[in-house]
Design a protein around this nucleic acid. Structure first.
Lengths: 215, 215
DNA sequence: TTGAATACCAAGCGCTTGCTTGGTAGCGTT
DNA sequence: AACGCTACCAAGCAAGCGCTTGGTATTCAA
């Protein structure tokens, strides 16, 4: 159902989430969220994010969309297949979103800022539901499934590496900086509340930028 | 069995891991690793770190020390009790180790370096087996258990906050810097191989220091 | 009008899980 | 010799798990 070719992403002009999703669905690299399969993926992503993969049962997922647990296996081969597909599609969407945000910014440092804010929004469920699963549930995937997801993920990471290299961060190679940065950002999931009365999300992005790209 | 008072830690002179553990056992704030209970805790820590909490069964833990699964509940009230106790004791030991390492360093910046290296060693199983569980399995704890662990953890974090404040890191309040730093360090668990032929652990500590405390 | 495809139900199988129960063997005290 | 304490075994229960099977209702193209 899904073509795995790296479809070039449209990164010009303004785009609403709905438009972006629609164009990815039209390209055949994202499941239609209004289809039964798409509804299952969205429900699973929500639950995996809330409770974790092992603590989410197929009965939970089925109940979320109003069907019985057995019917899930008409759409997916296994519970792990659901997780793997969720991770793939989340990565595809996150990549499209970040490519767009990065292309909008002008200076290299602003591009990095845009990427940081973009990933923060993704992690905190403001833009890419299920993004935090990518880090939290990596070990729940079999080796084969990890490979499937990694192919999509490489394209996503390449945007980061290019951006970091151009911004001229200290701390060594872009790959190392990216890994430290990813850890720092992903971990904000467990303490930062974007809707709280403290730091706002763009403010947090600024602080992170200040550390990883001083000046 | 365990006194919860904040026992002042001996932080003078050289100390082998064995000596440090022995003194903590003598103080009654750590379980003797040679007792049946201690052997269970060590086995559980190893397994939780390798496979995660939910994917580790009480039968796995029992087999590791050569008893039957039911016998575990002579030593612990529940599987979660094991996890909670592991987390507590790991925190106690990590704190003692870091207090010692920090006290050995001279300048504020060297103290920060010592803490970073200390936590990296802990995360990668070179010094504090089970440390990575603290971050990875936090959500596996009930609210009550989280409170129990948090009391020990506060003392550990205080060392960090003091060290960061004195080192004068950019990026805002020490609490924020610490959270970003913890995320970055904890995540190294999933990509950094301390025994590999690439970057060594002290080198990695240097790079991290360069980012979080420039100059 | 038929036939295939899609989406789902109803029932339950086989297995694993955390944990319980009732009992026993060995040891140090008194 | 009697007691109590610690550490453990043997057996299994009740619940929950992922997943299978055989069948049905609806839709839509030929």
């Amino acid at each position: 159902m899904q073509k795995n070719a790296q479809v070039p992403l449209d990164s010009s002009g303004e785009q609403s989430p709905r438009q972006l999703i629609a164009s990815l669905v039209a390209d055949g690299i994202l499941t239609d969220p209004d289809s039964p399969r798409g509804r299952l993926l969205n429900a699973a992503a929500r639950l995996f994010e809330q409770k974790g993969f092992t603590r989410t049962t197929v009965r939970d997922i089925a109940a979320e969309v109003g069907i019985l647990s057995g019917s899930i296996f008409h759409h997916f081969a296994s519970k792990e297949d659901i997780l793997c597909t969720v991770m793939q599609e989340v990565t595809v969407y996150a990549r499209a979103r970040m490519a767009h945000a990065s292309a909008q910014a002008e200076s290299p440092r602003e591009k990095l800022r845009a990427c940081i804010q973009c990933e923060l929004e993704a992690i905190h469920g403001l833009a890419v539901p299920g993004f935090s699963i990518l880090v939290a549930e990596w070990r729940s995937l079999s080796a084969d499934s990890q490979k499937r997801v990694l192919r999509e993920r490489d394209a996503y990471e390449q945007i980061w590496l290019d951006t970091i290299a151009e911004a001229g961060c200290p701390g060594g190679e872009p790959a190392l900086v990216r890994r430290l940065l990813l850890g720092a950002l992903a971990h904000t999931y467990s303490w930062f509340k974007p809707r709280g009365r403290g730091l706002s999300l763009p403010e947090l992005a600024d602080r992170v930028l200040l550390i990883f790209a001083p000046l």
